[in-house]
C-alpha cells in the first residue's frame, strides 16, 4: 500500500538554467496527512522545485516520488494521485469556469455525471456561480486562484501541490481557500504549498521547509523550525536579509 510512503519524496533534485543554478539538490519528505509549507524569498527556487516535483519541468538530476510512484518513470500513476495548481501559468482561460472544470475532469478520465455533480458543488462552495458564463480570462485574480484550486481538487487527488495559492487573493477568498484546504487535510489529504507570507504559513502548516538559493536551509515541524522565536525572525536570519540603517533613501522622507 502507498500509505507507508511519504506523500511526496524528493531526492537530490537539481536544475540549472544556462549558467544559473536554480535548484542545487533538494531532499524533502512530506509525510502523508501533513500540511506542508515551503517558504523562501523570491527567486529561491520554490516554483522550480515544485515544477520538477509534479512533472512540469525535467530535473537535471534527482528523483521525485508521489506516494511511492516515480513522477518521471511512472508518470501515469503518479499524476493520477496529484492535484496541481501552478503559479504564473495560464489556465485555458478562454473557457468559462464550468467549461474549464468539465475539461479538467474529463481529461482525468472521470465519469461525466460525477464531473457535473462535483463541478456544480465546487462552483457553489467557491462562490463562482455568479460568474455564470464569464470567461476565466475576465475573472479577477482571486477568482482565477479559486477556479485553479477547483481544477486541482476536482478529481479527488491524494496530494495537492499549490504554488503561491494565496498570492493576490483578497482576505475573504483567502479565508475560503484556507477553510477548504483544512477540510481536505482533515479528510486525510496532504497539501504542499509555497509561500512567502509568514503569517499564513504559521497559521496553517504542520510542517515547514525554508528554501533559499536553491537549497533547503531548515526543515521540520513548525515548532522545530521556529523554536522559541517567531517564524519571521527565523526566516530573516536564515535567508540573511539586511535592515535599513536610515542613512540611505533619505529623499523618501519629506
Amino acid at each position: 500500500m502507498s500509505d507507508q510512503h511519504p506523500a511526496l519524496s524528493l531526492r537530490g533534485l537539481a536544475k540549472r538554467f544556462d549558467t544559473k543554478v536554480a535548484v542545487a539538490g533538494v531532499d524533502l519528505d512530506v509525510p502523508a496527512g501533513s500540511f506542508y509549507g515551503l517558504l523562501g524569498p523570491n527567486g529561491a527556487g520554490k516554483t522550480t522545485t515544485l515544477s520538477m516535483a509534479v512533472g512540469l519541468l525535467r530535473p537535471d538530476a534527482g528523483q521525485a516520488r508521489v506516494l511511492g510512484y516515480d513522477v518521471w518513470a511512472d508518470p501515469v500513476r503518479a499524476k493520477g494521485l496529484l492535484g496541481v495548481m501552478p503559479d504564473g501559468v495560464r489556465l485555458f482561460d478562454r473557457l468559462s469556469g464550468a467549461e474549464l472544470l468539465a475539461y479538467h475532469g474529463l481529461l482525468r478520465g472521470m465519469d461525466p455525471a460525477v464531473v457535473d455533480q462535483r463541478a456544480a458543488e465546487l462552483l457553489d462552495v467557491l462562490a463562482l456561480n455568479d460568474a455564470g458564463r464569464t470567461l476565466v480570462v475576465d475573472y479577477s485574480a482571486g477568482m482565477k486562484k479559486k477556479i485553479g484550486l477547483a481544477c486541482a481538487l476536482l478529481h479527488g487527488p491524494r496530494l495537492l501541490v499549490l504554488d503561491e495559492p494565496f498570492e493576490a487573493v483578497d482576505p475573504v477568498s483567502a479565508a475560503l481557500i484556507r477553510d477548504i484546504l483544512h477540510r481536505y487535510v482533515t479528510g486525510g489529504g496532504t497539501v504542499v504549498f509555497s509561500s512567502h507570507v509568514m503569517e499564513t504559513v504559521e497559521r496553517l502548516c504542520s510542517h515547514v521547509a525554508i528554501l533559499a538559493d536553491g537549497r533547503i536551509k531548515r526543515v521540520g515541524t513548525l515548532d522545530q523550525v521556529r523554536g522559541d522565536r517567531s517564524l519571521e525572525e527565523v526566516f530573516v536570519a536564515v535567508v540573511g536579509g539586511r535592515t535599513a540603517t536610515g542613512e540611505e533613501l533619505s529623499w523618501l522622507s519629506r
Binding site: E99, A102, P112, D116, G132, R133
Partner: peptide, 15 residues
C-alpha cells in the same frame, strides 16, 4: 460583455 445567463445543463454539457 458576455451574456450572463445562468448555467445551461451541467458543466460537461456546457463544454
Amino acid at each position: 460583455s458576455r451574456d450572463r445567463r445562468g448555467a445551461l445543463g451541467g458543466a460537461v454539457a456546457q463544454l
